[in-house]
Nucleic acid binder design. Structure first.
Lengths: 348, 348
DNA sequence: GCCTCTATAGAAAGCGCTTTCTGTCTGGGA
DNA sequence: TCCCAGACAGAAAGCGCTTTCTATAGAGGC
C-alpha cells in the first residue's frame, strides 16, 4: 500500500515525531538524524498525506485564487502573477510549498460562494478574489459573511480589483481606480474635439462597470457635454460588435465609442469596419485594460493601462503574509492613459 | 470554536455516523432524520472539514488542471471548459461538489512536477494535464513515473493536447492533430503559389512545436519545395515580432510566414507592417489555434482551428469518469483549416 | 403468533499526521 | 566532581471524519 510516515520512521529508526519534524522543519533535529530521515523518504518515495497533515495541523497549504473568467487574459495575467509570487514566497520558507490554485467563477455569484465554501472546507491558507463583483446587496452580504467566516478561521483574504468589503478590517484590498482611468480617457476624447461619444458598458450590475461609467460621465459633465448612447453587455468581443449597431442606430452622428474594455473594443472596431467606417477617421475607439493584443489591433488601441501583473504579484504576496496589508485595508491602484492610433480628432 | 460534525449530531439527536451518511448520501437515511440533520447543519452553519473527510475516505474532491500558461487564452479556454464540465458532472452526483483548480506551470517541468506532487499529496480525485510537454527524456520519464503513481493511488489522469505516455494504459489522452493541421496550412500556402515560406516555431524542445513543424515540412517535401528559414521562440507576440526580422534577414524574398500560433502571428504582422510590407500583398501570414482575437486581426488571420472548448469539456468529463476513456487510450482531435484575409497569392 | 428479512441507526475503530509533554543525554560552570 | 541547562528524541493524545460491524424495530410470510 501507500507509504506512510510511520514506514519512513521505521526505516530511519526514529520515531514518527522526528520524521514529522524533519519534514516541517520547525523544530531542531540533529543533522545526522535529519539526513537519515531524508534518505529514508527518498528511498521509500514517500509523499506526505496532505489531508492527514492538514487535519492535524488545522491548516492546509492551499491558496485559492477566484477569477471571473479564466479565459480572459485580464484575469489570466493577474492570476499568473499571483501564482508566481506565491510560489516565490513559499519556496523561501521551510516546508512552505503552497498549492496556488485558480478557480473560475464565470462571474456567477453562486459559483463564487460555492468555491468559497469548498475552500473553507479545505481550510485554505488564503483566498484571493480577483475582479469586480456583483452589486446585488444580497450577494454582497452573503459574500461578506463568508469572507468574515474565512478570516475568522485563519484564512487570509485578499481582494484584487474589487472594492473593499465595508466594515471588514481583516481583508486587504487592491482597488483599481477605474473611475479616474475612465475619466482621463473621456477627457482625452473631449480634448480631441469629440462631442458625441457612445459607450459600450459591461454588465449593468457590476462594480467595475459602474465605476468606469461614472468616470466617463464625470468627464462629460465637467465639460458640459451631453451623454451619448450607452449599451450594456458582457465583457466580450461579441458584445462590442453587437452594441455598435445599436449605438449607431441611436446616434448615427457618433464620432467616438468608448468600450468597457479592450476585448469589447475589438468587437466595436470590427463592426465599424464592416460598415465602412474608418478608425479613427470616422469614429474613434477606445478600450480599457491594455491587454497584450491591444497594441496589435489596427489601428492600435487607445486605452487605459492597468498594472495587472504588478497587482497580481502584490495580491499574491499579501495572501502569503509576505507584505504588510495597506493601512486602512485598501490601496488604490491607478491606471494610465495610453494614447495610440485608434483615437483622433473627429473629421468634421 | 468551529462547529464539528459531532456538534451537528448532538443537535440533531443522532449519531455522528448518521450525519456523515446524510452529508454523503451514500446510505439510506429516513427522510425525517435526514431533514432533522440538515436543519441542524443549517442552524449551526456547519462546514465539513475537508482534510478530515479526505483522510478518512482516502480521497479528496480536488481536481487539478495543469496548464502551461494561464495568461494564454489557448489554455484559458480549455481550462474554463474543463472546469464547467467538472462542475456539471459533479452537481449531478450526491455529495459530489468538486473543487476544480487550475495550476499554472509556466511551461516549467519542475513546476509541473511540483504541482503533481502537491496534488498527489492532496489525494486529488483527478488530474488533467493540458498542453504539450517538454521532450527531454529525463523529464518525460519523471512525469510518466509520477503519473503512474497517481493513477495507482486512484487519481484519474487525463492528458489534453499532449501525446499519450507510452505504455501507460491508465491515462486517457486527447491529442490535437497538430501535424495534419500544419500540413493543411502549408498546403494552402503552396496552393496559393508560395515557394519561399518562413516559419516562426515554438520552443524547440516541445511536442507541439515539433509536430507542427513536421506537418509543415511534410507539406513542403510532398510538393518538392525547399524549406524556408525557421526561427524558434516562445509562444508569445514578441517572439513573432523579433523572429520576423531574422526571417527577413535570412530570406528577403519571403512571400509567406507561418507562425507557431495566433499570438505569435500577431507579432509577425506587427513587424511586417512596421517595415512597410503589406499583408497579404507582400507577405502572407498564417497562425494556429484560432483564438478569439484572430478574427479581429487586420487582415483576419488564416489559421487552424482547434476545438479547444470541446476538448476541455471532454477532458473534464473524462476526469470525472463521466465518459468512457477512448479505446486504446487516446483520441486524435483534428484541426480545421480556416482561411481568412491574411493569406493570398504572392504578388510576383 | 413466531421467525426472518429489510430498513435504519449507533458504536467504535481507525485514517496518517502534528504536537505537547516527557524524558535522556551531553557539556560546561561552580 | 556534581548539577543544571540545553539539545534532541520518543510516547501518546488527539485532529474530525468515514465505515464496518452490530443492534433494533417493524413488516411480512408461514
Amino acid at each position: 500500500m501507500t507509504v506512510t510516515l510511520a514506514d519512513v520512521a521505521a526505516r530511519a529508526r526514529v520515531s514518527p515525531a522526528t520524521v514529522s519534524r524533519v519534514l516541517n522543519g520547525n523544530y531542531p533535529v540533529a543533522a545526522s538524524t535529519r539526513e537519515r530521515v531524508l534518505r529514508a523518504v527518498d528511498e521509500l518515495d514517500y509523499v506526505l498525506n496532505g489531508p492527514a497533515s492538514s487535519l492535524a495541523a488545522a491548516t492546509s497549504d492551499l491558496v485559492g485564487v477566484l477569477v471571473n473568467d479564466i479565459a480572459d487574459p485580464f484575469f489570466g495575467i493577474m492570476a499568473s502573477a499571483a501564482q508566481s509570487a506565491i510560489g516565490e514566497v513559499a519556496s523561501g520558507r521551510a516546508g512552505g510549498e503552497k498549492l496556488a490554485v485558480v478557480c473560475n467563477t464565470g462571474g456567477s455569484p453562486e459559483r463564487e460562494l460555492t468555491y468559497l465554501t469548498l475552500l473553507q472546507r479545505q481550510r485554505a491558507a488564503a483566498v484571493i478574489l480577483m475582479g469586480g463583483s456583483l452589486e446585488d446587496p444580497e450577494h454582497l452580504a452573503a459574500t461578506a459573511g463568508k469572507l468574515a467566516k474565512l478570516a475568522e478561521a485563519g484564512t487570509r483574504v485578499v481582494l484584487c480589483g474589487r472594492p473593499p468589503v465595508p466594515g471588514d478590517a481583516h481583508t486587504a484590498a487592491l482597488v483599481f481606480d477605474n473611475r479616474t482611468g475612465a475619466r482621463l480617457l473621456t477627457e482625452h476624447l473631449l480634448g480631441l474635439g469629440h462631442r458625441r461619444v457612445g459607450y459600450v458598458a459591461g454588465p449593468a450590475d457590476r462594480t467595475t462597470t459602474r465605476h468606469r461609467l461614472e468616470g466617463h460621465r464625470a468627464a462629460l459633465a465637467a465639460a458640459g457635454v451631453a451623454e451619448g448612447p450607452t449599451v450594456h453587455g458582457p465583457y466580450d468581443r461579441r458584445s462590442g460588435y453587437e452594441a455598435t449597431a445599436e449605438l449607431l442606430d441611436r446616434a448615427p452622428d457618433l464620432t467616438a465609442v468608448v468600450a468597457a474594455n479592450d476585448t469589447v473594443a475589438l468587437g466595436v472596431c470590427a463592426a465599424l469596419r464592416e460598415r465602412g467606417l474608418s478608425i479613427p477617421g470616422d469614429v474613434s475607439v477606445a478600450g480599457f485594460d491594455d491587454l497584450p493584443f491591444s497594441v496589435d489591433a489596427v489601428p492600435a488601441l487607445t486605452t487605459v493601462r492597468l498594472p495587472l501583473h504588478e497587482a497580481g504579484i502584490r495580491a499574491g504576496r499579501l495572501a502569503m503574509g509576505a507584505e504588510e496589508p495597506p493601512a486602512g485595508g485598501s490601496v488604490t491602484v491607478p491606471g494610465e492613459l495610453v494614447v495610440r492610433g485608434s483615437t483622433g480628432a473627429p473629421r468634421r
